[in-house]
Write a protein that binds this DNA or RNA. Structure first.
Length: 503
RNA sequence: GGGUCGUUAGCUCAGCCCGGUAGAGCAGGGGCCUUUUAAGCCCAGGGCCGCAGGUUCGAAUCCUGCACGACCCA
């Protein structure tokens, strides 16, 4: 192990501890109270006029102030912080000296003694016994905390280098409590989504991540290989086709919450693997899914944040249902001045887009050009908005509108200027589905690498009869961004993808 | 993929324009200090200045390339 100067000094302290008969990495812990429990126990005793309880607390040292023959330290555990008050008279010469010489910021320790209030009124453990639980060799970049003139808690030189925070997330979490809070909220959010679905007749299921044919979205897959079966396999880009097969199998409502993988660029709202919720429900449609989306997300906000008014970047997002519903052609015309319905082929739409100063790639199909126009509008869709009626060409799994087969019953949900969800009245006509797959095949031939592949087993399932149904997919990471007011998906992923770096 | 910016001590940063061989605060080390909470005071340390090359008597500083990251655009 290569050690720097600071680490070598701490290794020397390991020796000091062992010489004093104190094992730096013992197996047993004798904690009687968490930090929060100790504080509560003291306050309860104080209120009852009883003697202060004796406790043993355990945690990481996050602050030390040595004043001579007396010292103060704060330790932190999963419930919060508590102060240790150490006196030479209480600990004895040798243990007190060992504390001064061998205990550092970042060490996990155990301290026992009665609870007291110090002169400044802070509830503290007046330490009689002290053990090392795990000596830290590498110093954690603990910031200093202080209160400014207005009394706001400020931090001095906090560990904030974005790259290092992601590469060493453990250190980030250890020293930045607000980062821990992001992932706590994320977990509560996912729990709330599950609870709502479980309470509304959805069955949670698990479907293959390794798939012989990928599908359910427009994206390039990661490819892998099964050696024994001598078979190419894809990491799933969505759960859609496997979940809808289950409706053929007579489940009325199913959902899956898990990881999708898309072999595409990284951005503030894209990571190659991301978490998705997909749900499907028989005997409903696009409009049922709009209500489901509203109820589900509003419920999670109420449970996790206690409010429907979310501060997001410089905006306040109001999640109170019902949400705005606007047709795709209308929202695009509103934002760009182009009514794409007047330009029904790629050539004329491309010309019109260029005339208005928008980029339009030569090889882009009509459907993709429409999608490009939507991207122009996307950042302005801050309040929850269902954009509905999408071109069939870019929606091979959705049912066409009865009065306009060039469009399908599909919506995308936008909140905070991001696409959060996608839903259809699901296509359940096997012959139409076959035509769509063939159409996608032609698009692939024409150079669209994201075109949907043919899936004959899916067609076979549909031929047995698939009930009319609605489906909705929700980007969990982006919802977490919204709930925690983070502008980057990496802030809501514990281990975001980074390029490898030597050393 | 393109553009802009960044990378200096364990952490947070200054120094770079205008080249002369590296600084601060915190952390760490030694000392004083028996109620502190950014504790205080004194002393002494600590650096492949992202990597490689070029220009120059001399490069953290100027130039080129590369790596990694941030932001914007595609």
């Amino acid at each position: 192990m290569e050690l720097n100067e600071l680490e070598r000094l701490r290794v020397e302290k390991l020796r000091l501890l062992r010489e004093a008969g104190m094992e730096p990495y013992p197996a047993r812990v004798h904690r009687t109270h968490s930090a929060a429990e100790a504080v509560a126990a003291f306050e309860a005793a104080e209120e009852q006029g009883e003697a202060a309880p004796e406790v043993i607390v355990a945690g990481r040292i996050v602050g030390i102030r040595i004043l001579g023959k007396v010292a103060f330290a704060h330790i932190e555990d999963g419930t919060g912080k508590i102060q240790l008050f150490l006196r030479k008279n209480d600990l004895g010469e040798s243990l007190y000296t060992l504390f001064k010489r061998a205990f550092d910021l970042g060490d996990f320790v155990e301290a026992g003694g009665p609870l007291i209030r110090t002169r400044t009124g802070e509830i503290s453990v007046q330490v009689q016994s002290l053990r090392m639980l795990a000596k830290a060799i590498t110093p954690l970049p603990y910031p200093k905390e202080y209160r400014d003139e207005e009394g706001n808690l400020k931090r001095y030189a906090a560990f904030s280098d974005v790259e290092e925070r992601y590469r060493q997330r453990y250190a980030d979490l250890a020293v930045n409590p607000e980062v821990r809070e992001i992932f706590r909220k994320r977990s509560l959010m996912i729990r709330a989504l599950r609870r709502w679905l479980d309470d509304h007749g959805y069955l949670e299921v698990e479907t293959p991540i390794l798939q012989p044919i990928y599908g359910g979205a427009a994206a390039r897959p990661f490819v892998t290989y099964h050696n024994q079966l001598k078979q190419k396999l894809y990491l799933r880009i969505s759960f859609e086709l496997y979940l809808k097969r289950l409706l053929v199998g007579m489940y009325e409502g199913v959902y899956e919450l898990g990881r999708d993988f898309r072999n595409e660029g990284v951005s503030y709202k894209h990571n190659p693997e991301f978490t998705q919720l997909e749900l499907y429900r028989a005997y409903t449609d696009l409009y049922g899914m709009m209500e489901t989306a509203e109820q589900l997300i509003a419920y999670a906000a109420r449970e996790v944040l206690g409010t429907m008014q979310l501060p997001y970047q410089e905006h306040t997002v109001d999640l109170t249902p019902p949400w705005r519903r606007v047709a795709l052609h209308a929202v695009i015309r509103e934002g760009t001045g182009i009514d794409y319905r007047q330009f029904p082929d790629a050539e004329s739409l491309r010309a019109e887009m260029r005339r208005r100063g928008y980029e339009a790639a030569e090889e882009a199909s009509w459907g993709h050009l429409v999608d490009n126009l939507l991207s122009e509008v996307e950042p302005s869709l801050i309040q929850p908005t269902f954009v509905y009626d999408y071109p069939s060409a870019i929606s091979p799994l959705a049912k066409q509108k009865a009065d306009d087969p060039t469009h399908v019953e599909r919506f995308e949900l936008f909140i905070g200027g991001m696409e959060l969800g996608n839903a259809f009245t699901e296509l359940n006509d096997p012959f139409e589905q076959e035509r769509r797959f063939l159409q996608q095949g032609r698009a692939y031939e024409a150079g669209d690498e994201e075109a949907h592949p043919m899936d004959t087993d899916y067609l076979r399932a549909m031929k047995y009869g698939m009930p009319p149904n609605g489906g909705f997919g929700l980007g969990i990471d982006r919802l977490a961004m919204l709930f925690t007011d983070r502008h980057s998906i990496r802030e809501v992923l514990l281990y975001p993808h980074l390029r490898r770096k030597e050393g």
